[in-house]
Design a protein around this nucleic acid. Structure first.
Lengths: 207, 207
DNA sequence: CGAAAACCGTACCGGCGGTACAGGGGATCT
DNA sequence: AGATCCCCTGTACCGCCGGTACGGTTTTCG
């Protein structure tokens, strides 16, 4: 039980790093077992096939992702009473966290999966979809609280605004990976922060 | 000569669709030659190996991408004199174009490549990087023109602002693919449009 | 007509995903 | 102390795929 879980985790760790660098199709099971120090039989004891590995990988990634967002934005909530200030602070904390990643963001498994749709069954695609919808609900909730206090200075759909946060994160990851500029992702989050600030903060009226 | 080009193009067409759905690793040469109606020898006559195919695919994609941006934003330039209005119109035209894609955006090869870094040589990665830098230069140029006339209402790095356009496109593609909501991408572009509008347009001063 | 371009056919190699199945060591329960 | 799981190892095998090699053939163009 204990040992099994540990081996399983080790496989997932190795697999996650490999998949984010080479994609699912580019990652061979043989290289995973070589790096994990396990045999092929051992691998198939833990995962029925590559699809099962992908599913476990994705679910673990999403769970961890949610945990990080929970931590960041609940901390931001503690530090600021105003919902807008709290959200802006959350984005700042997120940018700091992303900025502190030594080799930049390793990549998002949700993005990887969506660029591999035809390779996996509907189950995985549905899991992926639900993850994005969970992001939407999370940020939508925050914007709803903000809109109780503030009026947006441009007409905007709240779901689309919520999705913008995920969009900037996913897009920022792509750009910073392609450019090999790890800092780029955090910068893009801060640009989004400026936009949200502009959207809700009342204009400075000249007297 | 003529026929060769045509066959090559057909291979690239088939390969592009396959790669965007299953990634490079998930796309087999055998399936490409089956669908193209060519033999394996024929394939390797046109492309030395999978890497060469990837490079040709990426270069063609980038070229086409640039052409589309050229068209859209030069048309927007004709229709509006003011650089801000022209840019905002360009984003609207882009959103319309994305909205009209029957099955949604098929996916961006630049994103695919950046999630496959370890599978390709430095040459391809450099090509990819240059493509993103070209986007940056394009949009930076537009924002520079805007800033001659307008002052941003929030302090912002112009390169980061330029990258925001690419970020939203890449991120929007990921989200709309994951959610299977083709409209999502165009919506995100329009949210970006609202943000840019807010950033540069002077606030409506209440009297 | 001749030469180059654009393929086809065949044979082969090693790697990989996946299956099957037999067995073994170690912890745990009875 | 013995039985029973869990957690693997070892071996053998299959078919697909990327890639190489190379000889031959058709098509196209000058």
């Amino acid at each position: 039980m204990r040992k099994g879980e540990e081996t399983r985790t080790r496989i997932l760790d190795v697999a996650e790093a490999a998949v984010l660098q080479k994609g699912f199709g580019g990652t061979s099971i043989e290289e995973l077992i070589a790096e994990t120090g396990i045999t092929k039989s051992g691998f198939f004891y833990h995962f029925r096939d590559k699809n099962a590995l992908a599913k476990a990988l994705l679910e673990r990634y999403i769970e961890n992702d949610e945990r990080i967002y929970d931590e960041i934005f609940s901390r931001a909530r503690e530090l600021a009473d105003d919902p807008l200030q709290s959200f802006l602070l959350g984005l700042k904390l997120l940018a700091e966290l992303l900025s502190d990643l030594p080799n930049g963001h390793p990549g998002c498994l949700v993005a990887t999966v969506c660029y591999y749709e035809r390779l996996f069954d509907r189950d995985i695609q549905e899991t992926n979809k639900q993850a994005v919808l969970a992001w939407r609900r999370r940020f939508r909730g925050m914007f709803e609280e903000i809109m109780v206090v503030y009026t947006p200075r441009e007409p905007i759909e709240i779901d689309q605004l919520a999705d913008m946060v995920s969009t900037v994160l996913e897009g920022g990851i792509v750009l910073s990976k392609a450019l090999k500029e790890p800092q780029g992702l955090a910068d893009q989050v801060l640009v989004l922060r400026s936009f949200v600030k502009l959207l809700f903060q009342p204009p400075i009226v000249r007297q």
